[in-house]
Design a protein around this nucleic acid. Structure first.
Lengths: 340, 340
DNA sequence: AACTCAATTGCAAGCGCTTACATTTTGTGG
DNA sequence: CCACAAAATGTAAGCGCTTGCAATTGAGTT
């Protein structure tokens, strides 16, 4: 499989074209610093050899990688996909390459991935959410890799973010739900350890309850890991442990879709008996039946703005400006006034 | 933002620990070639400096990157996500890192991404489907980067694949559909240019028609780009242009879900009036209403087997063994006997 | 034809790391 | 306590590329 002809190097091209390596390098990187004639010769050699520059060497010599890393919790569901695609497209238009890594929502893996991407020379990093170990932040500091946080927005922290206020968004949604007469609320949450978004969403519901003179402590919480099946199980738990519940909030659409499914299986009618509310507004939400009431997240805008900010930071040193975007409730079929 | 203390190098660690760079290198790569005492000293220096090795330099010096690239058409939908996650997990267990890039189903971008990943030193590549320009294959050849094809299976080609036979899978599905009395069939296909999967799926339906003594040329084809909305539009076109259609095959679940939605909007009942069939069996399929009849693809197994094969090829030189997996019809709510 | 001066090109020094090979240290048995 | 092999460490030569600086080239002038 592995033949022995070594892959061609700059040197090979130079020899083939009868010029120095410097000229080839310039021809590739700054074409107009080179005569038309030389350029032709060099390009011909490049093609003849199918030469492709060695990225590591280039990065090392030039101390620039034109690479920006993105570390997301998961690739499994489309949650981050749309935003990431927009991020990548924007970066691409600036001539940057995106490197993605996923962490399965685990802090240790995240740290490992951060190191991996930094070691690979990422000029900057895109991270999801603010909360992580001080150690990780210290590392980023000493390596002095600029980072941008997304999927959250919090100016009280030093690190810039381009995202939305999870707490406020969920509060707004919860207020609407309470307005519809719901008093017995439950919340199926994703794991909250080192996940500020999950915590913020919970706080949002509690805020709304407090405002509406309900006792925040009455919120029936179930914490579970990510997944449709887990959402289903959690829903069943909720209905068993707190059968008077009329509105089930879910930390994200995936859990909500699971809840929906189990409701159907259990003969619980949505939204007649119980309302179900998601968060994220991914494709799943629209396709589910009944279509899911959820909090719409501006995936694409978040993605491209983040891409733009990072690209400009790296190329021109333009400091990142924190941007708060809106995340608004979208009302679809799974929400109805409380019965009775 | 960018402070001026340069990031620490191997040399810095060596100095701090009072040893040579060679020792630090060995300590990091082959810990047991080094005294416990030295190791302690070095590790302490490493931590104190938050040192992280420069990947490019390492790759260049050792001619190994421990990186395997995967190039997929899109990250937007979960189509490739699950398989990719499994691929990544498997690679990770072998100590490899995965690099992903997406092409938006465009051949030119694919070629660009292949070059990018190869330039980054990917030890091997995972590609989707067999069909691509000879030029691309030539490049892979001269760079001598081993590649594995997935999401397809075809032993008639030289390049090894671990996947399933799209044509056969779709044929089996179509036979069942025809068996249920459907005679007027339509196919909403993804773009077929440089997409052997799409073509194979079409051929599969045609095979089934031929077997069942229908005229393959009667299959009403609509070709469109990827997306729920596009699926919806295509469905409408089909119903207008060939209103007697009773079964609409879709090239993938995303299109099918779009078709489903438009059917509802148009007042066409699924499956009473028209049956809808997808392909891929991604989460969307299960969540859709009615749940989608589709061809189940063994995402996870394909992913981990590919990961294993590539990892073993790179580490031990074990040649890749082509593996054909099964992709079977899954019958859910959107398929019913033809009416009348 | 001699002379500027700017545009091209070549030279060579690294970038941060690994790894043969050489050297030193350590541990062992006599 | 010494000789000697084995283990640990150090030395230094690159890996393939970029880039500051010097040398060369070739117009354009006088």
């Amino acid at each position: 499989m592995t033949s022995d002809q070594p892959t061609p190097t700059l040197q090979d091209v130079a020899t083939a074209a009868g010029v120095s390596t410097a000229t080839v390098s310039r021809c590739l990187n700054f074409p107009d610093q080179v005569t038309k004639r030389t350029r032709a010769k060099v390009m011909q050699a490049v093609n003849a050899l199918s030469y492709s520059p060695n990225f590591g060497a280039r990065a090392m010599a030039s101390r620039r990688t034109n690479t920006i890393g993105a570390i997301i919790p998961t690739m499994e569901n489309a949650v981050f996909a749309r935003g990431l695609q927009a991020f990548q497209d924007e970066l691409h238009s600036y001539g940057f390459t995106m490197l993605v890594a996923s962490t399965s929502y685990r802090a240790d893996i995240e740290e490992e991935q951060i190191r991996a991407l930094v070691g690979r020379g990422a000029d900057a990093l895109l991270l999801i959410g603010h909360e992580r170990s001080p150690n990780t932040y210290r590392f980023l500091e000493t390596q002095n890799v600029p980072t941008l946080i997304t999927w959250a927005f919090d100016t009280s922290l030093t690190r810039p973010s381009i995202g939305f206020d999870n707490r406020k968004a969920m509060r707004d949604m919860a207020l609407k739900v309470i307005e519809l007469g719901h008093r017995n609320l439950a919340f199926i949450s994703a794991r909250t350890t080192l996940n500020d978004r999950a915590k913020a969403r919970q706080s949002g519901i509690e805020d709304a309850m407090a405002i509406s003179e309900l006792r925040a402590s009455d919120l029936h919480m179930v914490e579970t890991v990510y997944g449709i099946e887990q959402g289903a199980t959690a829903f069943e738990q909720v209905m068993k442990a707190a059968s008077q519940t009329t509105a089930v909030f879910c930390g994200n659409d995936v859990l909500a879709v699971g809840a929906l499914r189990r409701a159907r299986e259990m003969g619980v009618r949505v939204p007649e008996d119980v309302s179900v509310i998601g968060f994220d507004d991914i494709e799943l939400a629209e396709v589910a039946y009944p279509a899911l009431t959820t909090v719409h997240v501006p995936h694409r805008e978040m993605g491209w703005r983040a891409g733009k900010a990072l690209a400009e930071l790296v190329t021109n040193g333009t400091p990142i400006e924190a941007i708060e975007l809106d995340a608004n409730p979208v009302f679809r079929g799974t929400l109805a006034p409380a019965k009775g």
